[in-house]
Each structure stands twice: as C-alpha cells, then as structure tokens.
Design a binder for these strands. Structure first.
Lengths: 191, 191, 191, 191
DNA sequence: TATGAATGAGTCTTCATTCAT
DNA sequence: CATGAATGAAGACTCATTCAT
C-alpha cells in the first residue's frame, strides 16, 4: 500500500531528525511515536527493533550519499577538475543534507550498525575508490592506499563542513576552494 | 588526604577505560563502582553526578593533550621540521594513549560537555594555533583561518590513527611520513 | 458454508499445536494468524477472544476423549477385562493423540476455562464413573468415592504416559501391563 | 545483614503466594513489588530476573519437600509401615504447605526451570528412590523402575490432595487410609 | 466476510541517585 | 568519609483487539 511506505518513511524521517538533534540514546521510542504521530506499537509494525531502525537509516543515508557523489562527472575534464567535482559533490551533498552529515558523523563509529550493513553501506564508496585508483595509475596522485587517501580527503571536507555548521566561520566559496586545493596538494603526484 | 586524591584518580581512570570500551551510555555507575572497587555512594562523594565525572575526564584528557603537543620543540629547526615534530607529537601521544584518543573521538560531538568546559578544554590548543599563525606570518603556510587549518591537520592525523587502530592497515613509518607530508603539502605556502 | 467450518477447524488445530509446543501465554494471536494462514481479524470472526478459543479447544478435547473411552467395550467379558479395556482405551487414545494429552495437562489447572465449560467437559467422564459405580456394586471394586477412584486410575495412566513421552523409559507392553495391574490391585475388592 | 535476608524472604514468600493464586504469567513484577511493599528495583537487587526468582522458589520448595519426607522414619517398623510413614509424610507436608503443593503442580512441567536446577531439585527425591529400591530388593515391592513407581505413588497422593483441596470431597482419615492402601496394593510384591 | 495496519496499555528490566547506618 | 540497599521513573518492546478498507 502506498500509505504504508509513507508511514514507514515518516517514521524514518522523524527518527533521523530526533537522532541528530538528541542522539540515539536520548531518543526514546516513545518520543519517536509521539512526534511521528503514531502509536508505539506502530513503529514495531514497520521495524522489528530500534536497532534495526537505526540500521535502515544508516543504509538509506549511505545510499543517498553514493548516488550524489558522481553526478556532473563528465569525461571531458582533466583529472584535477574531476577531483574537484567529486569533492564538491561531497561537500554540496552534505550542505544540502546537513542532517545526513550529522547522522553519519554520529553513527560512523557506532557498534549499532551490523558488520554486514556496514559492508553494504561502504559499497557506495566504490566509485570514489575506483576514481582514486585510476588517479594513482595515471600518476596524477601519489602512491598510497586508496582507503587511507579517501579518509584524508573525507576528513578534510568534513573539517570544512564542521566549520560551516558551527557559527565560528562562514564557509565562503574562497575558503572551500582553499580546502579542496589543500586536499589536492596533499595527495597529488610529486615529481 | 593523599589517599583521597588516589581514590578519585582510580575512579576516573576506571571510568575512562569503561567509557572507551563500552560507551558512556553503556557504562552504569553501578559497574563503575564495582570495577573501581568502591561503593556507589563513594563515587558521589567525589563527583556530584555522572555528567560531572565525564566533564572532568574531558578536561583531564584535553590538558594531557596540551602538555604533550609541544615537547621536543627546539628553535634550531626549520618551520617544516617543527611542523613535523608537532604532527608527530599528536600522533605519538595518541598512539601511546589510545584510550585518550578513543575517548576524545567519542566525546567530541557529545552534548554532555558543558559550553564552558568545552571552551576551557580548547584553550589547550592555543600553542598549536599560535604556531600556525606564526607560519602564515612567515609565509611558510598559506593564508587560511587557523581554526580551519588545525582541523585539516588534526583530521589527517586522526585518519591515520584510525587506520592504525583498525586492523586494515599497519601504520608503518613510511605511511605516517606520507600522511604528514600530505598534510604539509596541503597547507604550505605556494608561490 | 463448508469452507467456513474448515477455516474454523484449521484455526483450532493450529492453535492446539502451538499451545502445546509453546504454551498459551507464549502463543500470540498474531503467530496463530500467520501459521494458520489467515488474517488476525479473521480469527476474531470465528472466536470472540483468545480465551474463548481456548475454551473451545478444551471442550473439543474432552469430547474426543469421551468418545474414545468406551470403544471395544463388549459385555461378554469379565469386569477385570473390561477394566483393562477402559484403561487401555485411555492410554491408547492419548498415545495416538499426544497433543490432546499435553493440552489437557496444561489446561487442567488453568483458570482460563470457565466453570460452566469445566462442568460440561467433565460430563464426558460419566461413562467411566458409571462403570466404576457398577464395579463397587458388584463387589469387584473396593468401596470408595468414584471421583477419587477415577483420579487414582487416571493419575496412574498419566504417570505412564509421561514416562512414555519422556525419553527416560520406553513404555513396553510389559511395563504398561504392570501399570494397569498396579492400578487394578489398588482398587480391586479385598475379601 | 539480617534485614537483607528477611527482605529477600519476604519477596519470595509474596511471589510464591501470588504465583499460586494467579499463575506466573499473570503475576507482573510490578504487582509483586506493590504487594511485597518494595520498589520494583529492589526485587532486582535480590534476583537478577523474574525467571531466576521462580527458579529460587522451585529449589526452595524441593528442598523443603526433601527435608519433610523422611521424618519419623525409624528402623523398628515393618517395610509396609515405613511405606505408610513416607506416604503420610508427603501427604501431610503438602496439606500443611498447600501453597508448595500448588506451586509444584504449576511448575512441574514448566520450561522456566533450568535443566541444572531441575536436576538439583530432583536430588531431594533420592531418599525415596533408595527406599523403593530397597523394597524391591527385599521382595516387598514388585519389580519395576523406581522412577515409574515413584510417579505412581506420587500421582495417587496427588489425586488425594486435589480432592482435599477441592470442595468436592472431604479427605477423612479413612479415605486417606484407602488411598495409601490402594497405592500399596498397586506396588506390593505378588507371590 | 476477510484483511492487516494500527492501537496503547501493560510487561520486564535498568540505572542514576539517595540516605540510613 | 564509606557503604550498598533501596528507590522509582523511564526505557524497549509485546500483543489482544479493533476497524477502515
């Protein structure tokens, strides 16, 4: 039923918001029920447990990330330009979906996500890893484990995002350019 | 009483370990009492609440970090060399104090730490910020907000630390050098 | 509708099995619905409540017992022989309908069965009670309240059945003969 | 602390009564707390779970049974007389401790009791089993598995107890004598 | 009649904190 | 100061039953 999927989505969206605002442990299912406008039991009609619900949120978030990451990716660009596109995709996606970013940060080292789901979620990173491998092969990037390299890139963008979200500093186009350039300089091939 | 301070320290050390092993929410005060070998009430003689205890742990951890960061820092080195020393200090401190690293990661975005304590904790970063400001002034580093730059550096080292702690990849001296070099290349002054 | 009675029977049979396997309290109506292949609401078209359904099962089980008890009962036998036939009928019925036996044991002291239904169910014991009364009158059996005597006989057969169902002891023909003989010796008329 | 054991006992006694009156599943821990005059958490200070509490009740009940069973057992009696003493001990114990009897009946086939505890509980039957083995060896009792024989004896006494507890029939001394005689006749050695 | 999503009171259990000793 | 039994509010989850479709 169409209504069914909507109800499920409503619950997920509401939980996502609450988890980001309050943390998983500070979000009781009773509150979720109230704010989603359903009975407590209804949640359990759609998700067998709180843990399962969080896992669904995780998979959802990774999938959305994966879809957003490689857009605007055309071959008629230099590797450096493509790198910038990917980096901006990541940044833009999370700026547009702050809630996903904050959720990801919170869930990233959580033991609540099952090993299997974590594996599934990380499949969405594949296109990036392949792009980096290609870069190394083309001698555009320095030789390094692509997982480590991906971490370095992500952590730089993440740092920018945190500053964007905090009120300390406005992330102007210029600053973003600096961060991306800094990231590129950190991994590019040196003669 | 000397015994008194020891008791306090024992409780803190035990809590630090438990929090890292299990998470804050999965560490009941009753377990802390048992593993620290004291009665539940005793903990409350030393700390008015669980939250306060966590805040003490936070301040402690930041202070230790601050103390470790600028050791081996002699003036008879180039700026680049000093940068490497600082980066290695951070890395080494957390390798030697994994528990502090994991605690920091867990607590970093937690709402349990009061705004005031967070401010106090971050004072320990001052020497680094000043070192970076100097670098910009000396045209060793590119012009950038030092808070952002510090984030970039820390996030790179953190990425290395996570790989070190995970079993995926062994953090050889070479890989660490690569990370530090990558970090330096990302922020150094370009003509 | 014929289909209707079948549906009702399917639900009852399924519930009987589940109750014996898991206990009444551990058998949710939702599980019954799933395993019987009907919707939850459908069950409530046939039975106003779980309690009512259990009561129907009880009456059913007692009726089946009553029908089985006096088969093969021909007058051209001695009283002792007829006693053995009845005892074997009880034993055989429950060996063939283990599920009924286990259900009876579980339900026997339950407060779920209404007083009225319990009375109705026990009407099925009448033929046995009459047979025992006849035995006393004929000086084949010692003088005793027939309800007490029926309990003694049943409890002996029940003991045999439990041993048969457990894996401790195989109920050979010989052991069964011993139990029936023991039961008879316990109630037969003494000079 | 003395108070401690009392509190524990109070909770156990209260639970025993409630379980017998209402059944295990119909006795919520919240009701136990209220009727025992303690907070819900207090119960869990003494027993890790409802299941554990029930297991304790079981062990307690079996132990009390075991202690009561062989009293007044002097060697200057015939085997038949000793048999009567044991049978009366069982009957008297349960008449004096109706609550234990009803609890035993309810718990006897329950899956809540752990295998280990069931084994421990049944150790209390040992003196009876040994007494029966002796009887067989002395050719006082017919040859039969002692476990089966014990079941037969117990089930007869149990039948008497149920009639005693029900309002159908008053268990006079004469009727009890009949039951015991009936039981004896059922197992005694036949030439 | 059949369906099955929705309900919400009720269940067991946890745990930060208190306080009499 | 130390103890640890006691508290009770709050949490995750269950399930008999209803009712709109």
């Amino acid at each position: 039923m169409n209504n069914d999927r909507n109800r499920r989505r409503d619950i997920m969206n509401c939980m996502l918001r609450l988890v980001v605002e309050q943390g998983i442990q500070n979000t009781p299912m009773s509150q979720l029920a109230k704010e989603a406008g359903v009975a407590a039991g209804t949640i359990y009609h759609h998700f067998p447990s709180k843990e399962f619900l969080i896992n669904e949120l995780y998979l959802d978030s990774k999938e959305a990330f994966g879809k957003a990451i490689m857009v605007n990716f055309t071959q008629d660009k230099s590797y450096r330009e493509k790198f910038e596109i990917v980096a901006r995709n990541i940044y833009d996606f999370y700026v547009d979906h702050e809630i996903n970013f904050l959720f990801s940060e919170q869930i990233s080292r959580s033991t609540l996500i099952t090993a299997e789901n974590r594996r599934l979620g990380e499949l969405n990173y594949m296109p990036i890893l392949e792009f980096l491998e290609l870069g190394i092969k083309l001698k555009e990037l320095r030789s390094m484990e692509v997982e480590l390299m991906a971490q370095l890139i992500y952590s730089n963008i993440s740092a920018a995002l945190h500053l964007h979200l905090s009120d300390c500093l406005i992330m102007t186009e210029e600053r973003l350019k600096t961060v991306i350039a800094s990231s590129w300089d950190g991994i590019k091939y040196k003669l």
